[in-house]
């Protein structure tokens, strides 16, 4: 992907530069993280309470985002939904990232049989479409939040592995790694000091993209009724339970969709416009 707006105003601080689009993305992501953390303290109504006599109520002074199919406050449900969508996705991406990247680096440095077995097995895992894999798991073990977290982590481990391995293989051929090896350094030192610091940037960007995929997959599953189950509800589940409001274009079905889109688009924009370090020698 190319950067969207190259001519946007530049913020120059600490030797890094970020454009306006990147700042906007970061602000939206930051907003949702704060919401997810603070949701129980800031919801206007308990999420289970029926506060509106009407269902699919419109936006009003009392109910900022209208009411849902039972007359519950949508604002509260969205705020709490952020907790599930972000919480589950972040947990999965951390598990997938840490295990995938570690395995990738070990495979790259060790090479030989270890590398071959790991690569072949994880590639095979990768050739199961993600939605299908989760469908099968949900069919087998049922859906609960820990199951969802682990399933999605497993789905995205092969991708994280492949990406980290490819980068680590490149670094591993560099002369500075050869120098460290013939100095007699251990595997742990090679990973920590020579490989990881040189791949961490792209790896984090890649995990950002994987986070987006996980959010989309989780929402899709919940939309199919196979993800987060009542009484909990993430954004995808909110769309599902209020899909009856679609013919009336009720806020209850539109707002959770917008919430998902705002999060994923913001992450994408942030990734595409990450702060770039200023590399001019004369400048420093």
């Amino acid at each position: 992907m190319t950067s969207v707006a190259k001519s946007a105003p530049r913020h120059q601080r600490f030797g890094y530069r970020i454009n306006a689009v990147g700042v906007a993305g970061a602000l939206v992501v930051g907003f949702w993280i704060v919401v997810a953390l603070a949701a129980p303290a800031i919801v206007p109504h308990p999420i289970g309470d029926i506060v509106d006599t009407d269902y699919f109520g419109p936006i009003s002074r009392e109910l900022w985002l209208g009411s849902d199919y039972l007359g519950r406050d949508m604002t509260s449900r969205i705020l709490m939904g952020a907790r599930y969508t972000l919480g589950i996705s972040i947990a999965s991406v951390i598990i997938a990232g840490v295990s995938g990247v570690m395995l990738g680096m070990i495979a790259a440095i060790t090479g030989g049989v270890v590398d071959m077995v790991l690569s072949r097995f994880l590639d095979a895992l990768n050739s199961i479409p993600s939605k299908l894999f989760s469908l099968v798991v949900v069919a087998a073990v049922g859906s609960s939040i820990p199951v969802l977290i682990v399933t999605m982590a497993v789905i995205y481990i092969p991708g994280a592995f492949r990406f980290a391995r490819a980068l680590a293989v490149n670094i591993n051929t560099m002369d500075f790694v050869v120098v460290a090896r013939i100095r007699g350094e251990s595997l742990f030192y090679l990973i920590r000091a020579e490989i990881l610091p040189n791949i961490i940037g792209p790896v984090l960007v890649d995990l950002g993209l994987r986070f987006v995929f996980i959010v989309l997959l989780l929402s899709g599953l919940s939309f199919l009724g196979l993800g987060v189950k009542p009484p909990y509800a993430d954004w995808g589940a909110l769309v599902r339970e209020n899909i009856g409001g679609l013919p009336y274009a009720a806020p209850a079905v539109i707002v959770p969709s917008l919430a998902i889109a705002s999060l994923t688009i913001a992450v994408n924009l942030l990734i595409d416009n990450l702060p770039t370090k200023i590399r001019d020698r004369e400048n420093s």
């Binding site: 002369d175 013939i182 007699g184 000091a193």
Partner: peptide, 22 residues
């Protein structure tokens, strides 16, 4: 370790021989 220490090698491309993160 001592044998490794006493015999050092220096590579052609300093770009790839020095860890850019250090």
């Amino acid at each position: 370790a001592d044998q490794l220490r006493q015999l050092q090698i220096v590579f052609q491309h300093a770009d790839t021989a020095l860890n850019p993160a250090q």
